[in-house]
C-alpha cells in the first residue's frame, strides 16, 4: 500500500520536526484562496470597516503563528525586545519568509513619534485585486496589517496597524502602506530601556 513505511506517524503535531519552510505553492493557488476569504467575509458584514476588521482578525491569527514559527526556526528561540529590532524583524525576516522579499521600505512617521510605516509597491495580496468604486478606500492589505499586528502583539509590542493605499507619481497603481501606531506603554518602556 502507498505510504506504508514512508510516512512516520506522529501522535502529536508538536513532535513533528519543523520543516525548513522552502516548500512552495503556485501564486494562483493563494490568489484563489485569498479571494474566497474576502468573498466569504463580504457576506458576513454590512460595511467596509467591518470587512477590514474581519480580514485583519484573520491576519492576526496568521501573524501570531508566524512569530512563533520564525522565533523557533530562524532566531534560535530568541525574539526581539527592542522597538527597532522588532520592526526590522517584521520588515526583513517576516516579509522575506512570507512574501519572498524584504519590504520596500520602513520609515518613521514624521508627525508622530509612535508611528512607523512599512510600504510595498505591490503587496502580494493586492496583486490580483481591483477595488470596485463603491467600496471606497477598502484595502485587502488589512489582512497583512493583521499579520503585522499579530507578530507585534505576540512579541509584546501592542499596536494599531492599518493598511492604506498611497498614490505614487507616475505609477498607475498605488502602493500599500502599512501604518503601525504603537501603544503608549511600548514607547514608555522603550524610553526606560534607553
Amino acid at each position: 500500500m502507498i505510504g506504508v513505511g514512508k510516512m512516520k506517524q506522529y501522535t502529536n503535531v508538536l513532535d513533528k520536526p519543523l520543516t525548513k519552510g522552502k516548500q512552495e505553492v503556485s501564486l494562483s493557488a493563494f490568489a484563489f484562496l485569498f479571494s474566497e476569504l474576502v468573498q466569504y467575509n463580504q457576506t458576513q458584514v454590512d460595511n467596509i470597516g467591518e470587512l477590514e476588521r474581519r480580514l485583519e482578525d484573520a491576519g492576526y491569527a496568521v501573524g501570531a503563528r508566524v512569530l512563533e514559527l520564525l522565533c523557533h526556526r530562524d532566531k534560535g528561540n530568541r525574539r526581539e525586545t527592542r522597538l527597532l529590532g522588532i520592526l526590522s524583524f517584521v520588515h526583513s525576516t517576516v516579509w522575506k519568509v512570507l512574501f519572498g522579499k524584504v519590504a520596500d521600505s520602513l520609515e518613521k512617521g514624521t508627525e508622530h513619534e509612535d508611528e512607523y510605516m512599512i510600504s510595498e509597491k505591490e503587496l502580494l495580496v493586492n496583486r490580483f485585486i481591483s477595488i470596485p468604486k463603491d467600496m471606497g478606500t477598502f484595502n485587502c492589505g488589512a489582512f497583512v496589517a493583521g499579520i503585522v499586528r499579530g507578530v507585534l502583539d505576540g512579541a509584546g509590542f501592542p499596536a494599531v496597524v492599518t493598511a492604506h493605499f498611497v498614490p505614487v507619481e507616475g505609477q498607475q497603481r498605488p502602493r500599500t502602506t502599512i501604518l503601525i501606531k504603537f501603544a503608549e506603554e511600548v514607547l514608555h518602556r522603550e524610553a526606560r530601556l534607553g
Binding site: G21, Q23, E24, F30, L37, A58, V62, L98, F99
Partner: peptide
C-alpha cells in the same frame, strides 16, 4: 510561486 507556509496559515485562518 510563493511560500507554502503563508498559504497554509491563511487556509488555517
Amino acid at each position: 510561486h510563493m511560500n507554502a507556509e503563508l498559504f497554509t496559515l491563511t487556509y488555517g485562518a
